[in-house]
């Protein structure tokens, strides 16, 4: 019983973070049908933002808000620097430019800050534990669950109830038609990147809250998680991204419980094998999403 509770909390806290990572990637993919390889670096810049504000004396929540804002701005900047000049020309070109942009950001961190991990300021709450139902739970896991589920609900509400949200869902299936109704393409695209940056920023707080420090390559694992979650969930659907995030968290956590120590090092390989099996069964992912979908 306690193991089950422990397991559930582990899956939910990991899955919440994974779902946010995946959602941030797929919100841009849904609109543009293009993958942002620099997505992981949005998480990185927010982390370095926190690091640079260390010792500034600001309340932590203010620092966190600024860090998220940095990710949002970088997200929008990514669109201008890597997507806008080529997005209408070639899908491959965008993969390359966003990969190149990611390399620039990483190497800039390497060059101007350091290759070594840097500690970020975190509130004490992140290192405390809560006793519940006979088990000890790290408070940061509960924070992750609450924050991610809250954000997912808020996001779903905004996409459903605001004109901009409805327009974004429309643009994901029929971009040209949406434009012919007066929905400005650039507003939709910039908003998608801003949302992507926002999710990355929040993920950064939660993720770096787990590991406690930031490195130039810190964005790689979240990027990979987002990639795999969206592929198994279905790249064309926001619900698919969330489902994929939780499913991946379930697989990873289950492997954590099942595998012995020396096999655990190969966890990613096992996860990947499962992903291949899922794709054999459903090449389009679990949730197929709308059949149509054109680019600008």
């Amino acid at each position: 019983m306690q193991t089950l509770l422990q397991f559930t909390i582990d899956v939910l806290s990991l899955g919440g973070a994974y779902a946010l990572m995946a959602l941030g990637l797929v919100i841009v993919y849904g609109i543009l049908k293009l993958v942002n390889f620099a997505y992981g670096e949005l998480i990185m810049v927010a982390g370095y933002g926190l690091f640079l504000m260390n010792g500034s004396g600001l309340p932590w929540l203010v620092m966190a808000a600024v860090a998220v804002l940095i990710a949002v701005v970088t997200g929008v900047l990514t669109e201008y620097a890597a997507f806008r000049p080529v997005r209408a020309k070639s899908v491959t070109a965008v993969l390359i430019t966003s990969f190149a942009f990611s390399t620039i950001l990483q190497n800039a961190a390497l060059l101007f800050i350091s290759p070594r991990p840097r500690n970020v300021p975190l509130p004490d709450l992140f290192s405390q534990t809560v006793a519940f139902g006979g088990i000890l739970i790290p408070a940061r896991n509960l924070i992750t669950i609450v924050a991610s589920i809250g954000l997912l609900l808020l996001f779903a509400f905004l996409m459903k109830r605001t004109v901009l949200g409805i327009a974004m869902r429309a643009a994901a299936t029929q971009f040209r038609m949406a434009r012919m109704l007066g929905v400005p393409a650039n507003l939709i695209i910039s908003t998608a990147f801003a949302i992507s940056g926002f999710f990355a920023g929040v993920v950064s707080l939660l993720w770096i809250g787990r590991i406690g420090s930031v490195t130039p390559g810190v964005g790689l694992e979240p990027l990979l998680v987002a990639f795999i979650a969206t592929v198994i969930g279905g790249m064309r659907s926001l619900q698919g991204a969330v489902l994929g995030g939780f499913l991946l968290a379930f697989i990873n956590t289950a492997l954590n419980y099942l595998l012995t120590q020396d096999l655990l090092q190969f966890r990613d390989a096992f996860t990947f094998t499962l992903v291949i099996l899922i794709l054999l069964w459903r090449p389009e992912g679990l949730i197929r999403g709308p059949a149509t979908g054109q680019r600008t």
């Binding site: 620097a81 890597a82 000049p85 080529v86 020309k89 070639s90 491959t92 070109a93 390359i96 430019t97 190149a100 942009f101 390399t103 620039i104 990483q106 190497n107 800039a108 390497l110 060059l111 290759p115």
Partner: peptide, 20 residues
């Protein structure tokens, strides 16, 4: 460190912008 990669990345982006 990293200057080499940054320059290569910029070159890649430039080529993609001008000749995808």
């Amino acid at each position: 460190v990293g200057v080499t990669e940054i320059v290569l990345a910029l070159a890649m982006m430039a080529v993609m912008f001008l000749q995808p």
